[in-house]
Simulated assay, not measured.
Amino acid sequence: MVDHWTETVSLNGEDFFIRHWGDRDAPKILMLHGFPEYSGAWNDLAPLLAERFHCIAPDQRGYGQSWRPSEPEAYKTALLVSDMVALIGEAPLIVLGHDWGASVAYALTVGRPDLVSKLIIMNGVHPAPFQRELAKGGAQTDASQYIHFLRGEGSEDVLAKDDFEKLTSLFSANMDMSWLSGDTLAAYKSAWRDAAGLRGMVNWYRASPLQIGGVGEAIEGLSFDPARLQVQCPHLLVWGTADTALRPETTEGLEDYAPDLTRVAIDGVDHWLHHQKPNEVAKAILDWL
């Protein structure tokens, strides 16, 4: 039986809720969830990793039981990273990120390489290849049109209406959501709370510097310098091949930014791979580590 406990800690003067699995003295993995999840997103995967590691999963800023400022400017990437820097302390650890958690993980790894010994990304994207694909006006641009809706004022009210009907349909996006039911769905709704609770989550989109045009609309004049955004540590990318939210081309050329990259593809799963096939995901991670 894996030990599991929770705590509330102060990071940069604000309260953050943290879940833990495993032996306190084991090597640490910091697990960063995405949208619209919370630290409970790791309930399936973390116990499998916790046989060898101490898994640490915060509700990130704006999520779950952690601090939820209402203004979008409080969600700039540098501030999200500063929360994790405060949580980590001085000893480097392994960082694992999914979806928006991957964005924080990449920014942390690039900006504070002294704190990240290894980087694991699951269906998440490095900002440069992602922006490159968004700028093309192609398939990823079309797949990301929901970002315009989320950035609009009042989108959180629409998402929360009728017991989060719009949010759960957005969550699905032509993917397998059979895992989101019963007690799991109830726990997610509890974490979302209401429209005011959702505002912090949506503010991640509003604060993001990513540029995206309309359907089929390209953006000219963007340049990308791999030398500025290097992942210096060993990097594992675990990819669910049926993802419809993030297209596979968003990872093309990732080796230019992460020279020590290992790729593992998992068939039969999509964006929510850690819920759909946690055993396969855990094996990929543990074999690499």
Rank of each mutant, 00 (worst) to 15 (best):
Y38N: 07
L289V: 11
R263D: 06
D157Q: 14
E37G: 00
Y146G: 12
T168L: 15
V125K: 09
L11S: 05
G138A: 14
L273V: 13
G253H: 06
E220H: 14
D243A: 05
D176A: 09
L159Y: 12
W179M: 10
F164K: 10
K189M: 09
V95T: 03
R61H: 00
A207M: 03
A265S: 14
A191F: 07
S223V: 14
E90W: 02
A207N: 03
L159H: 13
D176S: 07
A282R: 01
E280M: 10
I120F: 03
V281K: 06
K166P: 12
T262C: 02
H148W: 14
P69W: 03
M1A: 13
G152A: 15
I212L: 15
P259I: 07
A86E: 13
E71G: 01
F164V: 11
R247S: 08
A195G: 03
S103E: 10
S169R: 15
G216H: 11
D270P: 06
W5G: 07
L119S: 04
A139H: 12
N123L: 10
I29G: 09
Y188I: 00
H271Q: 09
L45P: 05
Y106R: 02
Y63R: 01
P27S: 04
A191K: 12
R151E: 01
G124Q: 05
G182N: 06
R24S: 10
A135C: 12
L108K: 05
R68D: 02
R263F: 14
P113T: 13
L134M: 14
D256I: 00
F149C: 12
L286S: 08
L237H: 12
Y188K: 04
C55Q: 02
G221E: 05
P129D: 10
D142M: 14
D256V: 04
Q140G: 11
V95N: 01
I121D: 01
D270L: 08
T168R: 10
F224W: 10
F17E: 09
L286T: 11
M84N: 05
E14P: 00
A218D: 12
S103F: 11
Y257R: 08
W100A: 01
H98Y: 07
A227D: 15
L236W: 03
K76E: 12
D114W: 10
T251K: 12
M175L: 14
W204H: 12
L48S: 00
V158M: 06
L246A: 13
P234H: 07
R19A: 02
H148S: 10
G152K: 15
V231H: 04
S178K: 14
L170T: 04
Q65D: 15
V9N: 01
G62T: 01
A102E: 03
D194I: 02
V9W: 01
Q230G: 00
E217P: 06
R228Y: 11
A50P: 07
E153W: 06
D3R: 09
W100P: 01
H126S: 07
L108Y: 06
D23M: 00
K28I: 08
S208Q: 01
S39F: 04
F16V: 00
G197N: 09
